[in-house]
Simulated assay, not measured.
Amino acid sequence: MTTTPAVEPVTSPPTLRVAVLLLKAQAVVVGALAIFLVFKDLTSTFAALSVALGVTIFTIAASAAIYAIARALGHHRGGARAPGIVVQLMVIAIGYYMIMGGLVWLGAALIALAVLVIALIVSPPSTRALGFAPSPDETA
């Protein structure tokens, strides 16, 4: 009879847990926008239906991608860190254009949220949990 050694459960640091929670919230908001777009696609008349469908499909894909990134980060997959940062850089760009378009409060909130998520993902505790740095006891 063989026994398996006891494996200590891996716990995420608070910084990574909050980043994952914020990414999942972003996925939900983008998903709600996708549902709205589907509704608009079904109830509106369009000069260019293909453009409307393209935007809707892109929004659905974006929601799924953000959720997948959040889930991968929650499972300590280091390869999800760069895509998570890229998504947040895209959110910063969206926030910038919202500010330029007159939605200053919403654009500023998006930029602040994206900067916060990036800071949480690259913080030392998250970096260690994702396997990019030695643990504190190894550096001593």
Score class of each variant (00 low, 15 high):
residue 125 P to C: 04
residue 95 G to I: 02
residue 108 A to P: 01
residue 131 G to N: 07
residue 95 G to S: 07
residue 77 R to V: 09
residue 21 L to M: 07
residue 90 M to L: 15
residue 71 R to M: 08
residue 102 G to W: 10
residue 139 T to H: 07
residue 139 T to D: 00
residue 61 A to I: 05
residue 79 G to M: 02
residue 76 H to M: 05
residue 20 V to G: 08
residue 112 A to W: 09
residue 60 I to R: 07
residue 57 I to F: 15
residue 12 S to F: 07
residue 44 S to P: 05
residue 91 V to K: 02
residue 48 A to P: 00
residue 37 L to H: 13
residue 8 E to V: 02
residue 93 A to W: 12
residue 41 D to R: 06
residue 35 I to E: 10
residue 13 P to N: 07
residue 64 A to R: 09
residue 18 V to W: 01
residue 45 T to K: 10
residue 87 V to M: 12
residue 65 A to S: 13
residue 42 L to F: 13
residue 24 K to P: 00
residue 82 A to V: 11
residue 102 G to Q: 05
residue 35 I to Q: 11
residue 53 L to G: 09
residue 23 L to F: 15
residue 31 G to E: 01
residue 40 K to H: 05
residue 67 Y to S: 03
residue 47 A to F: 14
residue 25 A to L: 09
residue 1 M to I: 06
residue 9 P to Y: 09
residue 96 Y to C: 04
residue 66 I to N: 02
residue 21 L to H: 11
residue 139 T to Y: 10
residue 25 A to S: 09
residue 24 K to I: 02
residue 81 R to L: 14
residue 12 S to N: 15
residue 103 L to T: 01
residue 132 F to K: 04
residue 123 S to E: 00
residue 36 F to N: 08
residue 57 I to W: 14
residue 10 V to T: 06
residue 25 A to M: 06
residue 123 S to A: 15
residue 81 R to E: 00
